[in-house]
């Protein structure tokens, strides 16, 4: 702070508290709704204090699911989301580490071409090539499978660039020393490069886990079997019920369960998360 201006500091606190309150308000209302009974939604406006049906609603969605949404238990959808998010995060990191290693530490024909091909994927989000990508996955027989949910998403230009940037800053003496000691490419990669990249890998993992968990359009396209629904896209089927009012207490219980894992990851690993975010976008 440059000068002492108590009223300005007071305003700063007030604005921040107000902002935090506005951000938290929808979450609070969702939590309150998830603890109500079905009939309590007849009361208008809805109560802003939690009701007594917390255990009832949460155990209902976790074990039985919501009938209008194909009655998939939320536990199944949470598991699917977890598997998908883990496969995407681990897969992206693994193949990006390998390709960044090749691009930085080897000289080979088509190196530049491969680099540009990977770069182009930045400009091709799923949203812009929906139909043909679906066609490819369908013809490979990967619909309704974990492979279909995750593999098409694990190519990653951003992760490859991040590791490439990082590898370029690793002192060349390390490679010289390793080669003098007779280390081959695999050994250098495994024993020197990977341990050095640990923090970057962890930071990236946080970001990619959230990215994978929050996928929406892709699971919507490639899953028709309710046993492969992920939680974020499964909620849509609970909200848009034909000619009926959604069962808000169950929808909101599912929403809370769907947002809890990524929020815990972001809040619990805040340092890594911020580092990952800023590094990726640099």
């Amino acid at each position: 702070m440059v000068e002492h201006r108590p009223w300005l500091t007071f305003i700063a606190h007030a604005v921040l508290i107000f902002g935090a309150f506005i951000l938290a308000f929808p979450l609070w209302v969702a939590f309150v709704a998830s603890t109500q009974s079905a009939v309590s939604f007849n009361q208008i406006p809805m109560s802003l204090l939690p009701g007594g049906h917390f255990i009832e609603n949460y155990s209902a969605v976790l074990t039985r699911g919501v009938a209008s949404a194909g009655a998939v238990p939320v536990v199944t959808m949470l598991m699917n989301s977890l598997i998908m998010a883990m496969m995407i995060a681990v897969g992206k990191i693994a193949i990006s580490l390998l390709s960044a290693y090749a691009i930085v530490y080897f000289r080979f024909p088509f190196r530049k071409t491969i680099f540009w091909l990977i770069f182009i994927t930045l400009m091709l989000p799923v949203e812009v090539r929906i139909l043909p990508t679906y066609g490819v996955v369908a013809s490979l027989g990967m619909l309704n499978s974990y492979a279909g949910l995750s593999i098409p998403l694990i190519a990653s230009a951003t992760a490859t660039f991040l590791f490439r940037q990082y590898f370029l800053t690793v002192p060349e003496e390390l490679l010289e020393a390793a080669r003098l000691d007779g280390a081959g490419p695999w050994r250098f990669f495994r024993d020197i490069l990977i341990p050095l990249s640990r923090t970057n890998i962890a930071a990236l993992f946080v970001i990619l886990f959230i990215y994978g968990w929050n996928q929406y359009l892709w699971p919507l396209l490639v899953t028709t079997d309710p046993n492969y629904y992920t939680i974020v896209m499964g909620i849509q089927r609970m909200v848009t019920v034909a000619d009926a009012t959604p069962q808000w207490q169950l929808v909101m219980a599912t929403v809370i369960l769907a947002l809890l894992p990524p929020v815990i990851v972001v809040v619990g690993m805040q340092r890594l998360f911020i580092r990952g975010l800023v590094e990726i976008e640099k």
Partner: peptide
Amino acid sequence: TLLIWPYALAPAISGVLWLL
């Protein structure tokens, strides 16, 4: 901490919260 957590939410989830 109080201001960054919504980053973790999927846009679809944010939509459902506001829909209510």
